[in-house]
Design a protein around this nucleic acid. Structure first.
Length: 257
DNA sequence: ATGGCACGGCAACCGTGA
């Protein structure tokens, strides 16, 4: 099974990139974040022409997530349980081939002052509760997407962010660690315990040519799935495309169908 | 030491991103 997560920073701008990548890589599931449109504006026909079905949770202008799959998925949730009604379009969960797949776009937390940061922490608490419920149900599952968390100092270029940035603040990192302590496996770090493995480079200040990036896109695996883990790595070459997203795909392969 | 960008949106800059 081959899965990938990719924050595309507008699907309408990145549709050709996604189409090329799908044709070349043929994943079983592609999790998209920041589609930045409502479901009616999602270029679904382009992907169905390539043999992919789309589950889209969108909103105008901001956020938005989608899951593209070759087989027919069962939709489980269209928003993260435990959040207020009318929440932003940041979560979609499906079942596919015996695996529950949660696709998430966690709030950045740097806008909106203290309340904005608290909303990020609340979102992480709801994610923790969802992970605990999935573990209790003994399903195989993966929670993947743009977490907007640099888990450790190895996950950002030195000096790139200040200590009070919402991506690295202690409460942010503590909540990410809590997910791991539940028994989830950070797929990339399980196979590549040290060193940089960035998934994002800012458009500004020559970050990409100087390789000053962040590892903020992650895939967390339930225990039985972690035992099937074969590979996990960012597709850095996508950052060199014409008019690229500022994120690249994180690709995970698992033994078995 | 610091810094230069991109996207959507009832339409001229602004909120947001990270």
């Amino acid at each position: 099974m081959k899965l990938a997560t990719w924050n595309v920073n507008s699907i309408r701008q990145r549709e050709p990139h996604v189409e090329r990548w799908l044709q070349r890589e043929q994943p079983d599931a592609l999790l998209l974040q920041e589609i930045k449109c409502e479901e009616s504006a999602f270029p679904q026909a382009r992907f169905t022409a390539l043999g992919y079905q789309c589950v889209v949770v969108g909103q105008k202008s901001y956020n938005g997530v989608a899951i593209l799959t070759r087989a027919t998925p069962q939709v489980i949730h269209r928003q993260l349980p435990g959040l207020p009604d009318g929440a932003q379009a940041r979560y979609v969960e499906v079942a596919l081939g015996g695996v529950t797949i949660g696709n998430l776009y966690l709030p950045n937390g740097n806008s909106g002052g203290d309340a904005g940061y608290q909303a990020k922490l609340d979102w992480m608490d709801a994610l923790q509760a969802r992970a605990a419920a999935l573990l209790a149900s003994e399903q195989d599952f993966v929670l993947a997407g743009d977490f907007n968390v640099c888990p450790t100092a190895a996950d950002l270029a030195p000096g790139l962010l200040s200590d009070d940035d919402a991506l690295v603040r202690p409460k942010t990192r503590r909540r990410f660690r809590s997910l791991l302590w539940l028994g989830l496996t950070d797929a990339l770090r399980a196979l590549h315990p040290t060193g940089a493995a960035y998934t994002f480079w800012d458009y500004q200040a020559g970050c990409w040519p100087r390789d000053r990036g962040l590892r903020i896109d992650h895939a967390l695996l339930s225990p039985a799935l972690a035992e099937r883990l074969l590979s996990a790595w960012p597709h850095r070459a996508e950052r060199d495309a014409q008019l690229p997203s500022d994120h690249v795909p994180l690709v995970v392969t698992l033994d078995g169908p």
